[in-house]
Computed example of a mutant assay.
Amino acid sequence: MGKPDADGPGLPDLPPEWGRVVVPDDASALAAEAEQVRRELRRGGRASGRQPTLALPLLVLLVAVLTTLAGLVAVSWPRSSRTYVPATPAPYAPPAGLTGRSLPALDLVDAGQSPVPLRGLLPAMIILVDGCACPSQVAEAATAAPTGVTLITVAGDRAVAAPPAPGAAAVRPLADPAGGLRAFLHLPARPGSATALLVDRSGVLVKVVPEIRSAEDYRADLARLGS
């Protein structure tokens, strides 16, 4: 059946404490020993408290399911609906103390970029059109201006041609590239609106209209400029 390892040529040296090892000619003769080894391994696994090898795949599957559910809850969770309502800009008022102050000696420029001393055009109603050309409001002011009062439109970067105003006073279009008037007033240009200044012949600021809405905003003060 089998022969000891010591009698067989070519076998490696085995530890002497193993004793005499016999290698069978038929592998089926080892079935009983193999079954005994498997039983001992199973008993050892149960004694050590090890779980079956399916525990790890089940844990990974559980984590994947929980992650998917959390994502679905985050997407479908009802959110508070907020409707954005743009704020309506409130009319702004000129800084206190402007009325009664002397207009600074500024040089504006005409369409040919020639300097024009502002004080040489007084008394005047000055309309700042850097935020809006506002032709209808300029024409209305030209109609209301009394004789002897200059109506001036002032653009921010270039001279703006005045709209035709038949039967009304002439309009002098100028520009203020340096922004001297806005700096003096501390009033920023607002899109869609024009600002008016009424200045008497001595250079004193009589009235400031931050946003012209109608001729009634300045009519009485404009009439007094010509007296």
Rank of each mutant, 00 (worst) to 15 (best):
A93S: 13
T195E: 01
V116G: 04
K3D: 11
P191K: 06
A96P: 11
A142K: 00
V75Q: 12
A196D: 05
R172P: 00
P123A: 07
L72R: 13
V208E: 06
V129P: 02
Q137N: 01
L41T: 10
T153M: 00
Q113R: 15
C132W: 11
A159Y: 01
E35Q: 14
A139R: 15
A144F: 04
A162Y: 02
R190D: 09
P16M: 07
R213C: 03
L197C: 05
L69W: 10
Y218H: 01
E140R: 11
A168G: 02
P78W: 14
A32R: 07
A165G: 08
R42N: 07
P135S: 06
R172I: 08
E33R: 14
L128Y: 05
A31Y: 07
E216K: 10
G100W: 07
V160D: 06
A155Y: 00
A175I: 01
S48F: 11
V154L: 07
A124Q: 05
P16C: 04
L198T: 07
P177H: 08
L72Y: 07
I212F: 01
A144Y: 04
A124Y: 03
L118V: 03
E140I: 02
E140A: 15
A55H: 12
G100K: 06
R20M: 12
V206I: 13
W77G: 11
P4A: 15
G49Y: 10
C132I: 00
A162V: 01
P91I: 08
G45Q: 14
A47N: 09
Y84M: 06
P188R: 05
G49M: 08
Y92V: 12
T68N: 15
A31G: 09
V199C: 02
Q36C: 08
A64M: 13
L66W: 12
R119D: 07
T195G: 00
R42S: 13
